[in-house]
Structure formats: C-alpha cells, structure tokens
Design a protein around this nucleic acid. Structure first.
Lengths: 240, 240
DNA sequence: AGTCGTCTGTTCGGTATCGAACATAGGGTT
DNA sequence: AACCCTATGTTCGATACCGAACAGACGACT
C-alpha cells in the first residue's frame, strides 16, 4: 500500500480533488525508477502510466540508424503515458528514466476509468497534455534555431525544475544522446558554462552553482514552456 | 447555410456519426481562407475552430527576432484549434493559411459542447490530437537530424497529402519561413529535386512530377507521422 | 513594347557542428 | 600501490548551413 502523504510529490496527483484520488489511491504503487530503465519501447503497448515523484523520464525518438533525440521530459509535474487516455494506446517514442528516483505506477485501465468518470481528472490531464504539446513544439523550434550552448542551458533548467536538488547525475555522453548531438559538442558547451562559473562538472555529476546565470544564457524556448505550463496548471505552482 | 455534401471534404467531420454532426451542421460556416491569413496569433484567444476542406494551415512559432519555425500542418485531415477542447484556450503559436482554400468554421463554445456531450466526437478529437502530437515530435527530430533536402521532401509530401492536386502555390521564400531556413537553402534543395526530375518549379508554383521519387528521398520522419496518423484515425483513410 | 516588382539562381566568406582519432584524468577495484 | 575503466578534454579536416550581396528572369501592368 501507499503512504498518502507522499502523493504530494507528484503535482498532478496533488492537484486532484479528494474524492478523485481516493478512487486511485489503493491502486497507486510506488516503484523504483532506475537510471536508463526503459518504460515503454516505441510502439509498445502502455500497460501502466507513471506519476514521477523525484525522478525524470525522457521521451525519445530513436532513429533507424540508432541516433536519438529528446522530444520532451516528464518529472513530478506530469504523467508518463498520455497515449492511454488520448486513445492511441501507444506512441512511436521510447520512454527512458533519465534521472533515477521513484514514481507512482497505475494500471492504464484504471486511469482510463478515472479519466472518463471524473471531470476534474479529465480536465487536469488534458491541460497537462497541452503543456506537453507546448514542450514538444518548443523542442522543435530550439532544435532548428539555437546553438548547443543554449540547448544545454535549456536542458539543465528543465531538469533542475523537476528535481529538488541542484545536482544532476548525468554524463555528457547521455546529455548528448538526449540533445541528439555529439558528446564533444556537449563537452565544449559544458566547458564554457564551467569556465563562467555557472556549473561544476565531475565525472557524471553536474552541480549547478548559478541558476540565474543559466537563465540569463538560455534561449526563449525555456521561458515559453515554463510560462505556458504555469498558465495551464496554476494549481500546481500555487500549492508548492 | 451549408451544403451537407461538402462536409465530406473534411475527414474529421466525415468521420463523425450522423447524430453527432447533425448537431454541428447548422453552425458550420464555410469560409474562404486566403493565403497568409492569420487565424490565431500566439497567445490569442480562439473564438472559432476550423475544419479545413481544401486549404492547409500551418502552426508556426515566431521567435522574438522574427524568424519562425513550423510546428505542424493541418489540412482536411484535422482541425485547427485543439486548444479549445484541450482546455488551454490559447497556444503560443501562430496559425497561418499556407495554402488558400476553404474551411468550415465553428464557434469554440459549440465545439466544446459537442466534445463534452458526445463520446464519439470526444474520442475522435483526442485521437486526432495524438496524431498531431506525433507530427510535432517528428518535426523536432527532423529539425535536429535531417538535411534541408530531406526536410523539403517531407514538407512537400505533407502538403501533397492534404491537397487533391499535385500543384502547390508556394514561393521558396515562404517554404523557407516554414522550415526555418534561408531562402537560398530552399533554392538549392529545390534545384536538386528539379534536376532529378521530381518537381517543376516556376515563380511560386511547384508541380510534383514524381511522387514516388520524393518518397524515396524523404527521411523516415514522414512515414512515422503517416503511419501513426493512419493508425489513430483509420476511419478517415477507409472512407476516402 | 517597355517597365517594374517579385521570384529564383549564384557566389562569397564565415561559422557551427560533425566524424574520427587520440590524450588526460578521476575513481573504484584488486 | 598499481591498474583499469570510464568520463572528460583536445585536435584535425570536412561539411552543412548561414548572412549578405548581386545577377538573371518571368510575368503583370501600363
């Protein structure tokens, strides 16, 4: 069973009205999410959805030649598996744990019931999905127009927003896979940030020293996503 | 008033069950969509939604410095204004008529009613939205990994799929705005396609001579979106 | 027929990113 | 303490795309 208090760690669960999540509560299962774990393969049926608490999940597209690109990230602000209630059941993307932690797991069918029967849950999930759409759209824009330096800043800030620490466990190699660039490109960009005193890098650990400094360097894409998320899900930011 | 027969030109309307669209029918208004017309500005309230018949609408993000990037295109396969039923009301994108024609216009509130009251419409629109999500995700991937040549092929095929002709009215300058690249880049890419005998270009008109040839050159992104759309909305392809 | 605006084609140097190869250095293991 | 694996740093030339400037060419309009 599940400790009700820890539900607050996921903002979507937290935003649900009492009568709604009492319905879900008995079926929520707190599971460990290990770094690199694949939750869904591209096109694979989604048996469960996940409400991350202190982990981050990346949605990736993996190309035929093996290279990849991140489409969006989901943390304690959202839910992994929107295709369940959108009706498609699957998506042509892979979902990978990018930062280890825990998540509440729920059978897809149960979420469907809640989605169909409770207007509040319905509205909440659709608004979250719209925020996710904005994140994807802005990823497309950023990939087109912005430098690796700027994209790295955006990526760091998106990750920071979804964690409670200022330390990320993440090699440059992995970041490169997410951004869809070469590892050397990330090395160079991270080097600049380190020289500027904004981060400290050491063997798979990134310490963010100066968040305002990152925000000063990031492209507009980050703010667009953040503002839109706050607009669509105001309850989430109020309660924190 | 509206000629019921022409409703068939939009596949979403066409796929609605009889009792559902009889509800909407009296409120559908056939309107002219002029090239370059802006349906929504970024962040602007969506009073109406549009069901394109023989026009194409682009969803663009316009950056602070004025450059732009296409996020997705909507033709007679879909609806412009998903933010109405997703709950956000607005999106941080601009919707522009990319290819002139006509569309059925409907007040957002009326669509909301239909969305909430008719399960069939509800399912249909959410599944379409998921297809749109796939298109956006793949745009992000394509922007990251593929050459202008490949992206032009993808763009031409996406447009062709939404028109009944093999002729597009579109200057290279406009295509460049959509793809978020320089006009010269499009000139060069289009020149290659013309040399290969796949298209014929002349002052704002593109004649597609060899569609299979384009399909042979396009990146996997095009097929991913097409397959996913067909999967999510099978009724639409069956009836054609 | 001539003019003009727009669309397309071409060129130039500059820059960001790529692809590959290799060097260095933490940090855990034996 | 020595070792090794992995993460990070550095270099090289190649390439794709950019930014700007300009040349040609089609077609509409007078």
């Amino acid at each position: 069973m599940t400790d009700p208090n820890s539900l607050c760690q996921n903002q979507l669960l937290q935003a649900m009205p009492a009568e709604a999540y009492e319905l879900l509560l008995p079926h929520l299962e707190l599971v460990d999410m290990k770094l690199g774990e694949v939750l869904y393969e591209s096109g694979g049926e989604l048996c469960h959805v996940y409400f991350p608490t202190n982990c981050i999940v990346s949605l990736l597209y993996v190309m035929e030649n093996g290279s990849s690109a991140e489409i969006a990230v989901v943390g304690n602000d959202g839910i992994v598996g929107v295709a369940v209630f959108m009706g498609g059941g699957t998506m042509p993307n892979r979902a990978v744990v990018q930062s280890a932690g825990q998540a509440y797991r729920l059978r897809g069918q149960l979420l469907m019931q809640a989605f169909n029967q409770h207007g509040t849950i319905h509205h909440l999930l659709l608004r979250y999905t719209q925020a996710l759409i904005t994140q994807m759209a802005q990823t497309a824009v950023c990939n087109r127009h912005h430098s690796i330096d700027q994209q790295l800043c955006r990526w760091l800030l998106l990750s920071l927003d979804r964690l409670s620490t200022n330390e990320l466990t993440m090699t440059q190699e992995l970041i490169a896979n997410m951004l869809g660039v070469r590892r050397e490109g990330v090395t160079e960009a991270a080097g600049k940030l380190q020289d500027a005193g904004l981060i400290h890098y050491s063997r798979g650990r990134i310490l963010v020293l100066d968040r305002p400094g990152l925000e000063a360097r990031v492209c507009e894409c980050y703010q667009v996503v953040k503002i839109e998320s706050d607009r669509l899900l105001p309850a989430l930011t109020k309660v924190i």
